[in-house]
């Protein structure tokens, strides 16, 4: 990503007096040192989590926080994955990890598809009131979800999906719609309406124009929307803890239960291994597709 040619060429600096250029070089070093220290600050917790998860409890008690493990052991990982206790059950995070997968995948796909169609209608098939509808949907992104928790708990009960994974999928789709619609609306609004007009002249209808013209144009924004929704849903805790029951909890809730369970010896290495397991999917997405992740983050907040 860095444009190497943009760094000042040595020829330019050699014209300057010697002292000035020495000062500049020193300043440059200082800059890199400061940036490096901040990099260490951001990496430190991840480093601590990783090394702690690879130590034995004995070594954690005797060693210090930043030391590397003297003896690598993967016991904590095994325990975290399949044996750690989340309250009364002791099956590790494994079942909850799969709960999160089964919940995130359909919720991400449904909310993205709905967002794409909504954005398509609002941006390209403008009708009176469409902007008001968009504003109302957009506003839904900003409410603190506490204000819908109580009625939603009752509604899920009435619908017969309280405490189930379909119930959580439903909740995530509803409250993800605002953002996915925003993504696609802002993307499609830049496509000239003449395209739809021309396609209509050629006899294509609403559905065909969407699937044959707009969807193929939308790959980048689909990626943004999928990544945004996946990160949101995977990392969600509030809905997970409010609307699940023993057995249907997502991985974030299970992690919190493992860490805060008060029974038995505190196994910090297991806590850290469980935390890394819970973080791995979103971390992986970030490393593979960071550019799109940042675009999603900034889409709602930067003008234009």
């Amino acid at each position: 990503m860095t444009d190497v040619s943009a760094t000042p060429a040595p020829a330019a600096t050699s014209e300057r007096p010697r002292g000035r250029s020495f000062g500049k070089i020193a300043l440059r070093w200082l800059l890199y040192i400061v940036l490096g220290l901040f990099a260490l600050y951001y990496l430190m917790p991840l480093f601590v989590m990783l090394t702690t998860s690879l130590k034995s409890l004995e070594e954690i008690r005797t060693g210090d926080l930043l030391s590397l493990p003297r003896e690598l052991t993967f016991d904590a990982w095994r325990t975290a994955w399949s044996e750690a206790c989340t309250g009364i059950q002791c099956e590790g995070v494994k079942p909850y990890f799969w709960n999160s997968v089964m919940l995130a995948v359909p919720a991400v796909l449904i909310s993205t598809l709905l967002g794409a169609m909504n954005g398509y209608v609002i941006a390209q098939w403008r009708f009176p009131g469409a902007n008001i509808i968009f504003a109302l949907m957009l506003f839904g992104c900003f409410i603190p979800f506490q204000v819908v928790l109580l009625p939603m708990a009752r509604m899920l009960g009435l619908m017969g999906i309280a405490g189930t994974i379909p119930g959580l999928i439903f909740v995530h789709v509803i409250y993800g719609l605002g953002f996915t619609t925003l993504f696609f609306r802002n993307y499609y609004v830049t496509i000239p309406v003449e395209l739809v007009k021309a396609a209509k002249v050629d006899g294509a209808g609403f559905v065909r124009i969407f699937f044959a013209i707009f969807l193929p144009l939308s790959i980048p924004i689909i990626v943004v929307s999928v990544i945004w929704q996946f990160t949101q849903i995977w990392n969600d805790f509030l809905f997970g803890v409010s609307f699940s029951q023993a057995g249907t909890q997502p991985v974030t809730v299970a992690l919190n239960n493992i860490v805060n369970s008060t029974t038995g010896v505190k196994e910090y290495n297991v806590d850290m291994a469980a935390a890394i397991i819970a973080a791995l999917p979103t971390l992986l997405v970030y490393i593979v597709a960071g550019k799109y992740f940042i675009r999603g983050l900034t889409a709602g907040s930067v003008k234009g």
Binding site: W234, F237, A275, I276, A278, T282, F293
Partner: peptide, 11 residues
């Protein structure tokens, strides 16, 4: 600098 934003607050 940005990776913590991808983590769950619980993590």
């Amino acid at each position: 600098y940005l990776y913590p934003m991808a983590l769950s607050m619980i993590v």
